[in-house]
């Protein structure tokens, strides 16, 4: 490895994002750190408002500023800190070196332009292809994501595609410039399960063919279990647990992760008589937390949890959790 090189395509440290609203501050992202290895699929789970989207939008600087303000942290990508590069550098990276797919393709596709125009546009601006080259590449991309009769469909508008097909178009656009990292924010949440299954299958295929690294945001533990290599669990704007996917599901070490896994019903296997409930509500993020954000809902909580916000501790190989309770010892953690 050459000097200064890292084993990560993306290395995010202590990211902090605050919204300044009329009603006061919202501390949406609090000291979030994570890494992404080449070709890896990192799943990000957490309930709505836990800071998943704002984290990813912060690192590609796609947030409205104001009200958003990035208060700190670094985002290392291809040798540069994205938190500090000028906006035109960022623009050249966004949508090219880092591709994006969002939940609702209807809001991210422009209804008045043909799908062909929207795929060829980044090819021409970022890759410098001419019109004919860009059209050929667009057909190739649409075929890659499984759109039948691709050349003819270049002239169609987004509304002429079904929901699942629109999401395939979004994926084709995100892949157009051969990105190193793909950020997918709830890309199957608005789709029906049979269509979701098609998209998940497509992503597995594309990973094998193209080998880009992916950050996949979802609130669906089933989806995560099926496609992630590693999982990061977010709660109240923080990362509360991080582990390889099998380890996380087999051996969760944060009380929130444990309860979340117990609260969802299963489609197969034993059927529980009564669902386990997580009492209470997620926290209000009006200031930087000085105690554990899960404390009010946590069955394990003890006095220390009210005094300090736990840092992430190693709890196993490549596995960390932000909690003062040690489940293995059945006692408070010695840190």
């Amino acid at each position: 490895m050459p000097d200064g090189a890292t084993p990560f395509v993306l290395d995010v440290k202590d990211l902090k994002t605050v919204f300044r609203t009329r009603g006061g501050e919202v501390h949406a992202v609090n000291n979030v750190s994570f890494t992404l290895k080449p070709g890896e699929l990192l799943g990000v789970v957490g309930e709505s408002g836990s800071g998943k989207s704002v984290t990813m939008m912060s690192l590609i600087r796609l947030l409205p500023m104001p009200p958003a303000e990035i208060r700190g942290g670094s985002v290392m990508f291809e040798g540069q800190d994205l938190a500090r590069v000028p906006e035109d550098t960022m623009r050249a990276i966004r949508g090219a070196r880092i591709g994006m797919v969002f939940q609702d393709p209807m809001t991210s596709l422009n209804p008045v332009f043909t799908v062909g125009y929207q795929i060829t546009e980044p090819l021409r601006t970022h890759m410098g292809l001419n019109k004919a080259q860009a059209a050929d590449r667009a057909v190739e991309l649409l075929e890659l994501v499984g759109i039948p009769d691709a050349r003819r469909r270049l002239d169609d508008y987004p509304h002429q595609f079904s929901g699942g097909m629109r999401q395939r178009v979004m994926i084709a656009i995100a892949l157009a410039c051969d990105p190193k990292v793909l950020i997918a924010d709830e890309p199957t949440t608005a789709l029906d399960v049979t269509i979701q299954a098609q998209i998940l299958e497509l992503i597995k295929e594309l990973r094998q063919k193209l080998g880009m690294a992916i950050v996949w945001i979802t609130h669906d533990l089933g989806v995560i279990a099926g496609i992630a290599d590693r999982v990061m669990v977010m709660y109240g704007g923080q990362v509360v647990e991080q582990a390889p996917v099998r380890e996380l599901f087999a051996n969760p070490q944060h009380p929130y992760t444990r309860m979340l896994l117990e609260t969802v019903p299963h489609i197969r296997g034993e059927r529980q008589q009564k669902l386990r409930v997580i009492q209470g509500q997620p926290p209000i993020l009006s200031k930087a937390p000085e105690s554990c954000p899960f404390r009010a809902r946590c069955p394990q909580a003890f006095d220390r949890c009210a005094r300090e916000n736990p840092a992430r501790h190693d709890v196993g190989p490549s596995h960390d959790a932000a909690c003062f309770w040690d489940f293995k010892a059945g006692a408070p953690r010695n840190v």
């Binding site: 079904s162 699942g164 269509i195 299958e201 099926g226 299963h266 489609i267 197969r268």
Partner: peptide, 24 residues
């Protein structure tokens, strides 16, 4: 439909024999 539902269990995904319906 049932086979398309992803289970919150990574092991079950490895064993799943999923039926992927084509089209809409």
């Amino acid at each position: 439909l049932l086979s398309a539902v992803p289970e919150p269990d990574p092991v079950s995904h490895d064993e799943a024999n999923r039926i992927i319906l084509q089209g809409d």
